[in-house]
Amino acid sequence: MPPNPELIRIENLSKEYRNGPQSVQVLHDIKLSIGAGEFVAIMGPSGSGKSTFMNILGCLDTPSSGRYFLNGRDVSTLASDELANLRNATLGFVFQGFNLLKRASALENVALPLLYADIGVAARTQRALALLEQIGLEARRDARPNELSGGQQQRVAIARALANNPQIILADEPTGNLDSHTSQEIMAIFSRLNQERGITIVLVTHEADIARYAKRLVRFVDGKIVHDGAVDV
């Protein structure tokens, strides 16, 4: 059991995809608990179910059976609007492909979650500027994603994930599209967020040297957890 108060508890979670008469079981009876302030890396070969697991953790997808408690609240049965609110305020996403709005500036991209949190336009701009400053990109506030380097784009995406002060950041292969030097920079930001601000980070990765930034490793094989403990790579 983690030392800190429990933030995430997964009980007997399964996920299967039905395609006509065939069904594919992606996750088998997963049990997992993550405490507040942990830094967890999830590894596993392609098709092992780690991305599906991340989607369920991120309330983007719902489990076929089992339960998912977030802050002690069962979210596996919540309506779509409540899930949207969780994604907006409690969770922050960082994707491999950055997923920035192509036609919006860096500032507008960072401000987007604030828009869905019903924050006024002046406060939105102010907060988004502060976030850009934290990642050292305040000078590029009006740049479109295609005018930014990969590392800069990912930093904008991290600022966006931080917009509503989330408790958890879910990062799905955040360094997958970056060179090793930039990857180190991005991972340094995650480490800092985890250590200085106590934000829980769950990160999916293929690379051992990325996983080493985490303090705990969960390894998936064929939809099952085969390792949960120290980072032994």
Binding site: A84, R87, L101, Y116
Partner: peptide, 16 residues
């Protein structure tokens, strides 16, 4: 579609 997915991921409700 991806943009819609992203908006949903960062908190847009269906109604939005």
């Amino acid at each position: 579609t991806r943009e819609i997915g992203l908006r949903m991921a960062i908190g847009a409700r269906r109604r939005d």
